[in-house]
């Protein structure tokens, strides 16, 4: 167990070091996220001066930015392993495949959280929505939603990384499968920001249940989809 934790830490540190060198993924997903917010904001209308966009609509737009940015993160962190066949180097090592899955998931989540840290303030400024009513509710629901989404995305990124379709195929697979998580998250956001309700324990339990189910299934299946 201790050995696996050390290996997970090593793999995540390696992924983040590579990302820090090139800054390719973070730069790309942030630009994409901001573009999505600006374009959707313009399309839906920011409400004009003095008229902020509703919290529910704003968080829904943020979700779109997180989802598309997330797919790019999943794809890029797996592409690093495919270049020069680095994945085979990992698979021939005494490394549990489950540990590799957890490491990739953590790397993806870290990149997604960086995306959220940059894109969310942009949306708050642009849409002038009031996050102060449920700041922690927003953070918790988004974090749980992203975890479920990344759990599925990490699995399918590994599965499609050896195909030539990649990006398009990954989005086609991940978006429908993550619908339960996205639906549960947006419903909680609607209740908090549109109906003024407090963060509900039942909603959180549902989201958590989906997360655990996705994590367990993906962790179990991950080994089977890895092909050097």
């Amino acid at each position: 167990m201790k050995r696996s934790l050390q290996q997970i830490a090593l793999l995540v540190a390696k992924d983040l070091r590579i990302e820090a060198r090139g800054k390719q993924t973070v730069g790309l997903v942030i630009v994409l996220g901001v573009l999505i917010i600006v374009v959707l904001g313009m399309g839906l209308g920011t409400g004009g001066p003095g008229a902020p966009m509703s919290g529910f609509k704003s968080t829904a737009i943020l979700w779109v930015a997180y989802l598309f940015g997330g797919v790019l993160c999943f794809e890029k962190t797996m592409a690093v392993e495919r270049q020069d066949d680095a994945l085979a180097g990992l698979l021939v090592a005494p490394l549990d495949r489950g540990a590799l899955y957890i490491a990739k998931l953590l790397s993806n989540l870290t990149l997604m959280f960086v995306l959220a840290l940059v894109v969310t303030p942009v949306a708050i400024l642009l849409f002038r929505f009031d996050l102060s009513t449920h700041p922690w509710g927003f953070v918790i629901v988004m974090a749980l939603g992203m975890t479920g989404f990344a759990a599925i995305g990490t699995l399918f990124a590994a599965a499609v990384s050896s195909t030539r379709l990649q990006g398009g195929l990954l989005a086609l697979l991940v978006f429908p499968l993550s619908l339960p998580v996205v639906h549960a998250s947006t419903q909680m956001m609607r209740k908090m920001f549109e109906e003024g309700e407090a963060l509900s324990g039942g909603g959180l339990a549902t989201l958590l249940a989906f997360d655990l189910m996705f994590l367990a299934l993906s962790w179990f299946v991950f080994e089977l989809v890895l092909e050097p």
């Binding site: 070091r17 590579i18 090139g22 270049q83 020069d84 680095a86 021939v92």
Partner: peptide
């Protein structure tokens, strides 16, 4: 130990 077709290395490191 395996030496393959690919270098099995990370280019940015």
């Amino acid at each position: 130990g395996l030496i393959g077709h690919g270098a099995m290395l990370y280019r940015d490191l």
